[in-house]
Design a protein around this nucleic acid. Sequence first.
DNA 1: ATGAAAGCGCTAACAT
DNA 2: ATGTTAGCGCTTTCAT
Lengths: 340, 340
Amino acid sequence: MKNVTIKTISEVTGRSLTTVSRVLNGSAKKYRIKEETQKLVLDAAHKLNYAPNQAAVSLRLNRSLSIGLVIPTLSNPYFADVASLVSHSLRTKGYSVLLMDCDEKEAAEIEAVRLLAAQNVGGVIIIPSGSQSAHIEVLLKRGIPVVCIDRYHENIPVSYVATNHYEGAYAMTQYLISCGHKRIACLQGSHAVISNNLRVKGYRDAMGAGNLPVYSVAGNSFTRESGYIETKLLLQKKEKPTAVFALSDTILLGALKAIKEENIKVPADISVVTFDNSSYLDFLACPVTSIEQPVGDIANMSIKLLQDRIKSHNREAAEQQMKVLINPRIVFRQSVKMHK
Amino acid sequence: MKNVTIKTISEVTGRSLTTVSRVLNGSAKKYRIKEETQKLVLDAAHKLNYAPNQAAVSLRLNRSLSIGLVIPTLSNPYFADVASLVSHSLRTKGYSVLLMDCDEKEAAEIEAVRLLAAQNVGGVIIIPSGSQSAHIEVLLKRGIPVVCIDRYHENIPVSYVATNHYEGAYAMTQYLISCGHKRIACLQGSHAVISNNLRVKGYRDAMGAGNLPVYSVAGNSFTRESGYIETKLLLQKKEKPTAVFALSDTILLGALKAIKEENIKVPADISVVTFDNSSYLDFLACPVTSIEQPVGDIANMSIKLLQDRIKSHNREAAEQQMKVLINPRIVFRQSVKMHK
DNA sequence: ATGAAAGCGCTAACAT
DNA sequence: ATGTTAGCGCTTTCAT
């Protein structure tokens, strides 16, 4: 079974390569190709199950219909959700998606970006794993549009779409304070990413606005392990927290494990809230109040931004920065109790 | 910033295109190219930040270093875990990964496979969404190796790596029976996939072996919605189930929601078990006993199989079938109570 | 309304 | 030990 190319179709139909190419890539009317010829070619293509060789197209046009999707790790359900929506939507728009799972390693991310540049991708959607930005700037300089999701870099002109992390954390902390909590612990993720740092700042500022001292900010990784260890330590303190704010659902799971081990009850003995609003929160021992990240909106916005930049293909467009912050909302469940 | 090609490097170093190409793609010693020349070329390439144009390589060699990864949907955590492990591991081996999220639609999967063939991928790893297999057979016929994960087709010579669904379900059902349960409901997923059907068969056979009538097999989708609806219906029955076996963790979440709405307690009033062993099961209201799928082993095995087939590049190798079934184990938690 | 031909960047006969 | 050249499949000027 030989490969079917436009040459095959040209031979079968008796038309020239040029004509076949024009019909097959949709520029038929631009060249006023006879209806009859079009039908002939299209039928043959269909019968032979023709599919254009993307390598050839990409080589010829010096651009490709593929988009790089760079993700810290798919084993984090929030990132997986974003990846699912983004990749599926890109495909319906005719792009193919090059997936780069970086296992949360910044070095892997930098290498991934280099690879994508070599593959001549038309654009890149990235959830950065760390704080370095030079490799992303290189893409922009080469005229490859980039859109950051969730985490972003303020020092380079890269467009981004993210939840308003600061406002979300501020509002949630304020809510806990309004419920009478004073010793509110904040379990943070990686210090290297802006989403974490903005959330921490939201927490701190809200505590300050409530005239409360910052009780505790602990941890350095968006993992269950980190949540577990830090919560264990917190629960050893003489002045235990009355509320815990986990900055992600992964951290939350670890915290809940620690809380359970210490035989403390949610929400009777301790209140718990989190960031992400994963679908399983409803089904936990005590359903947990959480900040919803509007994943669908974020996916759609980022694809729109990327497409805009791809279509007006010039370096200026690639570098034209758009900053989109989407305000999250709190989904109230049963994990917070009025304190005294 | 113009693109750096081997021509640029040829001009800079004063060597021919051939020599430069040979040095840069590692066939230098095969052609006995002088150390000195090699160093010259390599240095220039590095200085100019050269990266080979993959489209050109792929066009020329009629094969590419990319692998297609076809997934029903990444929003299912089990598939996301597989995708994460597989894609990351493939990247460390020098492949790039084309992600195809099919949104559980078989039509999308068929289209995805067509696209991958057009992209000349070196191989495909797929978790099929449905029961059709012709599109996969086409890949094999074209000499493109394919490995199925989790779900597979018995009617074509495609290799696969999967959990032993039948044994897992059989063992779990037997366990419930040994705990005194007689009215055990089975909440199934899509009838179109073999993993589901084997699990159902395991359930049925174990019931038969225990001299029990098949109490109920309901549902037709691996979703929370399906789990919710079917459980709602089950709980209307006069003879309510004493145990529910959800064939996936997504189905489980829906079932738990229904159970909670009816104010029934797990495990006091009803026992619950599931397939998948997602990490959050430990943190549910009542931690749920589950069949663990050895995701890491499955990912590694499937990549090994694929690589073997890619390396011996001929159609016979692509079609040489390997069937790997990995026996799962049950992770016991607190969701099952002895019945009377 | 349709064709001929050049060329994208790379590799591999086939020279020398 | 190194170079010349043809050609992978496609698009696009330039002709007609």
